[in-house]
Write a protein that binds this DNA or RNA. Structure first.
Length: 921
RNA sequence: GCCUUGGUGGUGGAAUGGUAGACACGAGGGACUUAAAAUCCCUUGGCCCGAAAGGCUGUACGGGUUCGAGUCCCGUCCGAGGCACCA
């Protein structure tokens, strides 16, 4: 019987589905392990060979953990709301639900072929009302909460209202939007609308005016992480800054916690670093400058991390969008300022980025007074100061800040150095080093000391206070789209009012066209009777990250109609132990999810503070494109090695008709009608193609479909090959050459069991040498899998196979454990062999083989060399090293011992598996 | 500019500070076969000598630490990813 992967894979996939082999159930008698993939957005193109990389890795780990006795939760679902389906709908009229369902069916089909061990009963789709019920529910909870910065947690909004009732808002320490303070009496006298507005400033999900990324091309606002280089990530349309009233999530309230608890996570340093940068903590000082504009004096608060440089301040700058601009501009400067503001507004985000180096600005006419020196300094307006960060106003120290320096040079403002010996004739001196000068009481201090001294001074004199700022902004939460979760909010006499929880889910209404409505309103304005109790419902929908922020919780209890997740169920599964996905979500999904989880944690709905304990970023699979070279003006194609002798054009050729860079000539002729009569100039009888590493995309003809690999080599080969390609974290091109290697391995493995039709496994007792091969493999697999080094594990299998073949070993005692060891990687072939070995239950329920103690000892060599009880060297020797080799090794170290310590080795005591003790004199 | 990574044969890639290049691909040679496929065996970093054994050199570059460095430290060059007027 030959290895017939087609029949085997079909048989076992059907069996797994029929028997529910991978169903997960809460089971207190077993430790749990939760392995999660980032669920895919089901796009129309289907899966290519790059998508399953992470899924295969996580599947191997899940299967491995099951063998190790864990109760594994390994679910899959779909991030099904999103722009592409809606844009497709606008173009074709096809309902996004239809497109999405079709795409999901296709994805499922493709995934099923690869033999994943998902518990499909737990599948979630973010666009399913039963699912988005809980997305809407979470939003209501956020709407109904505020963030107490003293307690550092979210609290119900009713408690805040009670505080207002008693003592107004002056003493409340909360994360909130700026606004007026009011007393208890004023609060009581507020109208309904005024009360609503006041509370809105504190809610965690709130409505507020803010500068947003408006994308005209998509007709919607976008979050910061949905914009890159001034263009929308989806679609690549230009994005501009615009002030609009939008729903927002007060993510910034959690900035401190999001930053500090990063330390508790097993994530890569680079990913943590990205999140740190995105959160952008900076500790500085707010200082109040009185600004004189004509007759009036206005206090202006600025933020700086370098108060120590306050004696070097020569001007101040306001952001163009700052409210202070209108207030401070003098009548003489009014025209110039307005013209400047107009210019700034006209620019798109992209243009602003492109012009980063050009310096613009205008004088406001006002003068600020340096609170330490009493000196009068001009107040300018420039776009290099951002309204959204700090206070939107800065003190400028051109001698020690490069941006201020450029500005001062352009507008000819004074530059006063305040650090001894620094040269500011060409550029500013930004480093925090040196001794202070020209700085009154700070003179002579080291810069680092001066920073603290100045902070203390400012606080003591009541000129300002220490302040920590974060770059992390609140997330814009509404989108002017159709294909998303509707907000469970209606407007009662203009007051945003939450829908009762009993009304959830608020289902997306049917509409005839998905285009924005006539007056620029979102598509939901087209819905008939989009009201609640006669009041209008909110017309925007939630963004893509809404549905993906808590999906890992829903998998725990996907059919619960009463709660997002049952408390006991949550207490069992807790959080995700291993999360595998791409790095592109570093500043989006992974921040929002952590925020969302922390919020639910505060309210006691979940038991863990962090959602994803360990995270692995799988690399991208890049395309490997092939080229043919057409001789200009002919239909003749010249092979790579000879192309320099001709004038040629390079043409992408479908990689599926190229094998090991050799072109299949007949397939090429059949590929395109215009190539039907192509002629070739060959080298050594073959046509060699050129290649390049590019993104995998249709237009480069370098897309490899996993189905095709499953057809020709089988799913087990695909799985092994994707893992054999290299470390999971690394990006690498897909290159089908080499796949034969792992395919050969499987065929050879099969032949350990079958010689043609003959079952050749014997019950003979294994020899020590044979056991050694097995135990070497067990050790290697155990340590490598835990560190996700799958490529070396597979190598270890190949070595073991070669060894066993050389030993002509076909003994059950060896082969049976090997089947178990291989099963996470190649589940289908191993199931078949497991059955042939006489087992009736799936190999999934097998137990990971253990070392036999005697072999463990004999094969483990972790040596340290110690002199007089003090460890001097550690030497690790291969586990399979023979005793003679070990002794030779130790003899070599004798030289070392003599040289470094002047000692002579008297006796070497080698205790396998223990520390080597060397007796010296 | 800042942060994070990485640089090893023809290729993908192995090497807790301890025999660099495991394993695989490709390539070359051979066996089986009328032939091909499949399968199996041998060689395969470079250079030198040789019948064999062997020797020298070699992990981007330049220094350093160490008995010993692909690995640790400093500097330089190049690649990848992220952030970018964040005061």
């Amino acid at each position: 019987m030959e290895y017939d992967f087609k029949a085997i894979e079909k048989k076992w996939q059907a069996k797994w589905a029929a028997e529910g082999t991978f169903k997960a159930k809460e089971d207190a008698s077993k430790p749990k392990y939760y392995v999660l993939d980032m669920f895919p957005y089901p796009s129309g193109a289907g899966l290519h060979v790059g998508h399953p990389l992470g899924y295969i890795a996580s599947d191997i780990f899940s299967r491995y953990k099951r063998l190790k006795g864990f109760n594994v939760l390994h679910p899959m679902g779909y991030d099904a709301f999103g722009l592409p389906a809606e844009q497709y709908a606008i173009q074709t009229g096809q309902h996004p639900e239809k497109t999405t369902t079709d795409n999901i069916a296709r994805y499922r089909q493709q995934m099923d072929r690869i033999g994943f061990s998902y518990d499909w009963d737990r599948e979630v789709r973010t666009c399913d009302p039963k699912y988005y019920h809980w997305t809407q529910w979470a939003f209501l909870k956020m709407f109904g909460s505020w963030y107490d910065t003293d307690m550092q947690k979210a609290r119900p909004i009713e408690e805040l209202a009670a505080i207002f009732e008693k003592c107004g808002n002056a003493s409340v320490k909360a994360a909130c939007t700026d606004g007026d303070s009011f007393t208890a009496e004023q609060w009581k006298a507020f109208s309904e609308k005024e009360k609503s507005d006041a509370l809105m400033r504190y809610r965690i999900a709130y409505q507020g005016e803010t500068s947003v990324n408006w994308c005209e091309g998509l007709g919607t606002v976008l979050a910061n992480d949905e914009v890159k280089d001034g263009l929308s990530v989806r679609g690549g349309y230009p994005v501009e800054q615009k002030k609009m009233t939008q729903w927002q999530l007060r993510v910034s309230a959690y900035a401190g916690r999001l930053l500090s608890s990063l330390d508790t996570l097993e994530w890569t340093d680079s990913l943590k670093e990205m999140q740190k940068n995105w959160i952008g903590k900076s500790e500085g000082t707010e200082v109040v400058f009185n600004v004189e504009s004509g007759e009036k004096t206005v206090p202006v608060t600025i933020f700086t991390t370098r108060v120590d440089t306050i004696f070097g301040v020569t001007f101040m700058v306001l952001a163009p969008e700052s409210d202070l601009v209108a207030e401070l501009t003098t009548p003489e400067q009014k025209e110039a300022v307005e013209e400047y503001i107009k210019q700034v507004k006209k620019k798109t985000e992209r243009e602003r980025i492109a012009e980063t180096k050009s310096v613009t600005g205008v004088f406001s006419g006002a003068y600020g007074i340096n609170p330490l020196t009493g000196e009068k300094i001009p107040v300018w307006i420039s776009e290099y100061v951002l309204a959204g960060y700090g206070t939107g106003a800065i003190m400028a120290v051109p001698a020690h800040d490069s941006r201020d320096y450029a500005f001062a040079r352009k507008f000819d403002l004074p530059i006063i150095p305040i650090i001894e010996g620094c040269d500011v004739s060409e550029q500013s001196f930004d480093a925090k080093e040196g001794k202070m000068c020209n700085s009154g009481f700070l003179n002579g201090l080291d810069v680092k000391v001066a920073i603290e001294t100045a902070k203390d001074y400012v606080e003591e004199k009541g000129l300002g206070r220490r302040k920590t700022n974060y770059r992390l902004r609140d997330a814009i939460f509404s989108r002017q789209r159709y294909w998303g979760e509707p907000f469970p909010i209606y407007y009662k006499d203009g007051i945003p009012t939450p829908l009762p929880e009993s009304e959830l889910p608020l289902e997306l209404p049917e509409i005839e066209s998905f285009k924005p409505a006539a007056n620029g309103e979102p598509p939901l304005a087209r819905a008939k009777d989009w009201t609640y109790n006669g009041y209008p419902l909110e017309k925007s929908t939630m963004p893509g990250f809404a549905g993906s922020s808590a999906y890992y919780l829903r998998y725990m209890d996907p059919h619960n109609g009463e709660a997002l997740v049952d408390k006991d169920v949550n207490a069992y599964w807790r959080n995700v132990d291993l999360y595998i996905g791409g790095t592109e979500h570093a500043t989006g999904h992974l921040i929002y999810s952590r925020f969302w989880n922390k919020f639910l944690f505060d309210l006691g709905y979940v038991c863990e503070d962090e959602p994803f304990r360990k995270l692995i970023n799988q690399g991208m699979i890049q395309g490997r494109s092939n080229f043919v070279y057409r001789v200009v003006g002919t239909n003749t194609f010249v092979s790579l090695g000879l192309k320099d002798q001709y004038e040629t054009t390079e043409i992408h050729v479908d990689v599926n008709i190229v094998y090991n860079d050799k072109l299949d000539l007949e397939a090429f002729k059949a590929w395109r009608p215009e190539f039907a009569d192509a002629e070739f100039i060959l080298e050594n009888g073959e046509y060699v193609c050129g290649y390049a590493i590019e993104k995998m995309s249709k237009s480069m003809y370098n897309v490899v479909n996993p189905d095709l690999i499953c057809d020709t080599y089988g799913a087990d080969t695909l799985r092994l090959y994707e893992m054999f390609l290299g470390p999971i974290e690394q990006s690498k091109p897909w290159d089908t050459k080499g796949i034969d290697g792992v395919n050969r391995f499987l065929k050879k493995f099969w032949r350990l069991f079958y010689d043609r039709d003959q079952w050749i496994v014997s019950d003979e007792k294994a020899t020590a040498e044979e056991l050694k091969v097995l135990h070497k493999l067990i050790g290697k697999e155990q340590s490598d899998i835990e560190s996700f080094s799958y490529n070396t594990t597979i190598s270890a299998f190949m070595i073991a196979l070669n060894d066993l073949t050389a030993l002509k070993c076909t003994k059950k005692e060896i082969l049976e454990p090997m089947v178990v060891l291989l099963s996470p990687f190649a589940p289908h072939i191993t199931e078949e062999l497991w059955e042939a070995l006489g087992h009736t239950e799936s190999v999934t329920y097998a137990t990971f083989p253990e070392y036999i103690e005697s072999y463990t000892v004999e094969n483990t060599c972790t040596y340290a060399v110690s002199f007089n009880g003090k460890t001097r060297f550690t030497v690790d020797l291969p586990k399979d090293m023979s005793k003679e080799d070990v002794e030779a090794k130790v003899r070599a170290m004798e030289q070392t011992a003599k040289y470094t310590e002047g000692l002579n080795i008297v006796k070497v005591i080698v205790v396998p598996g223990k520390i080597v003790n060397i007796v010296v004199k």
